[in-house]
Design a protein around this nucleic acid. Structure first.
Lengths: 200, 200
DNA sequence: TATATTATAGATTAATCATTCCATAAAAGT
DNA sequence: ACTTTTATGGAATGATTAATCTATAATATA
């Protein structure tokens, strides 16, 4: 059964991508509905018919982000690599995405939903859960590193994870502040010297 | 010559401290003038007579922050300590401040002025310069570490600084996300294992 | 006591905020 | 052709934004 009614005149998927980039660059609170209507070239009625609300659109955009360029758990949970290699490839991918000239700098989950007013605390909660997912995946990777003997058996997985994850979250600030891919890749190399690897 | 006219009924210095904490916790854009008037218990006229504008007050608050609890360059430029010890004491102080229960979590220069609308780009610029000052001080410290032989002579000071500073900036996100002082101090210890110190 | 100066409370402003309403248009189903 | 359904453009909504205005109050100086 095909859809009835007047067909939409714009590509909803492309609109989400465009809105994602806007939220990513400017943040949830700082992106006004007028901003969205401008970049999407939509009337108010069309916007609300298609997306429900600014907040609902943001949720779709954040999901799009974690489903595409912001996805990192696949790197960290890749059992075909050594834990150190998994962390390394995740970090390199993260640096590449966050310094790319074709998308906003930094991580959407760090930069776009950190400070919301009381009415929009769900947005903070949502971005927090994304940040937590990354941290949990790093923890799994560190745990495997200890199990495999890549890291000392005495390593406190939680603290070591927090060390790595703090660096990861800091990349967003550096990228936003103008650090280049080359500079951050070199920083990644220095960080991983910390990871004592008797095997490679 | 004493000041003439009706005396102010509130303590301007205390007001700056209070406003600083509000901006620090909620961010510049998310803190409304109504919010400020509430926490300061001030009428609009009194507010503008005393501070000029929301932006001008923010500037005073950020200066207050970097002059007090947000001050870190003194740790990094302390020549009486070894460069590694200087970095370490700076990191420990930073962790203590950013996880203290008596003030907002994280760093004001990272969290309060990251995403501003077009009218308030000066606020972004201002917080950026604060972040840059910290990075420059870390760079000086790293350079001294190389000169003294604490770090390998082949160390790229810029990249190593970026590695350390990314961690520093990431502390803000972790603190805001609920990391405790103990957890972050342990993370600091793991980070500094990276700093190869033949001398201590 | 009179004047100059500054602070106060509270109303007011124009702009912007996210959202909704209304009339019309374009498609599918009967 | 007619009804149902959904999308559209554009005006209108009430709330909130930062900032200003008006009138009055409290101080120092002359």
């Amino acid at each position: 059964m095909a859809r009835t009614g007047r067909p939409r005149e714009f590509d909803r998927e492309k609109a989400i991508e465009t809105a994602m980039n806007t939220f990513w660059e400017k943040g949830f609170e700082t992106t006004s509905l007028a901003d969205l209507r401008t970049v999407l070239n939509l009337s108010s009625a069309s916007f609300y018919a298609a997306f429900g609300s600014k907040k609902a659109l943001y949720e779709e955009c954040l999901k799009r982000y974690t489903d595409t360029c912001g996805e990192v758990t696949s790197y960290l949970d890749d059992g075909s690599k050594s834990p150190k290699q998994a962390i390394q490839s995740m970090l390199r991918h993260t640096v590449a995405v966050q310094t790319s000239s074709t998308s906003p700098q930094g991580c959407m989950a760090v930069l776009s939903g950190m400070n919301c007013c009381d009415d929009n605390k769900e947005v903070e909660t949502l971005t927090f859960s994304v940040r937590k997912q990354t941290r949990d995946a790093i923890f799994r990777c560190v745990t495997r590193g200890i199990e495999r003997g890549e890291l000392a058996a005495t390593t406190d997985a939680e603290s070591y994870t927090l060390m790595l994850d703090s660096f990861v979250k800091g990349i967003s600030i550096q990228a936003k502040d103008g650090a280049t891919e080359e500079q951050l890749l070199a920083a990644v190399d220095y960080l991983l010297m910390n990871w004592t690897s008797p095997m490679n």
